[in-house]
Design a protein around this nucleic acid. Structure first.
Length: 114
DNA sequence: ATTTGCTCAGCTC
DNA sequence: GAGCTGAGCAAAT
């Protein structure tokens, strides 16, 4: 599927992936990173490097622990709040693991369609 | 739950 | 090449 990607391609994919994350759910940096074969750091960096924080729902990407991580467009507090209004379950300033789903899982569900 | 160590990438010297 | 920082992860305690 994916094997030899460039920085530009990586960005395109990440932007696309985060856009197809369903409302009320979130994903983790690691899953995206692993899917692309890059490090979670890169995912985070690319997300912050984007120029369209509106088209790129980077707030739907969080830690594996459940914490939202960072947010250059307001702060972790805002990011957390956005998730909350999206319908994501929030617990003690953290995202409920039941709302966290790997990006690969989303892709899989879309393919299974059932 | 908290602390510590590690990894990869970008920037600077 | 070496050192520092960062929208993180994993292990140990």
């Amino acid at each position: 599927m994916i094997s030899d990607l460039t920085k530009e391609t990586i960005k395109e994919i990440i932007y696309t992936l985060v856009q197809l994350i369903p409302i009320g759910k979130v994903t983790t940096y690691s899953s995206i990173a692993k899917l692309l074969g890059i490090t979670p750091r890169e995912v985070a960096m690319i997300l912050k490097n984007n120029k369209d924080p509106v088209a790129i729902p980077c707030h739907r990407v969080i830690y594996k622990d459940g914490r939202v991580g960072g947010y250059s467009f307001g702060g972790s507090e805002v990011k957390l709040k956005i998730l909350k209004i999206e319908g994501v379950c929030i617990e003690d300033n953290k995202v409920g693991k039941e709302c966290i789903v790997d990006i690969a899982d989303l892709l899989d569900e879309d393919d299974l369609e059932g």
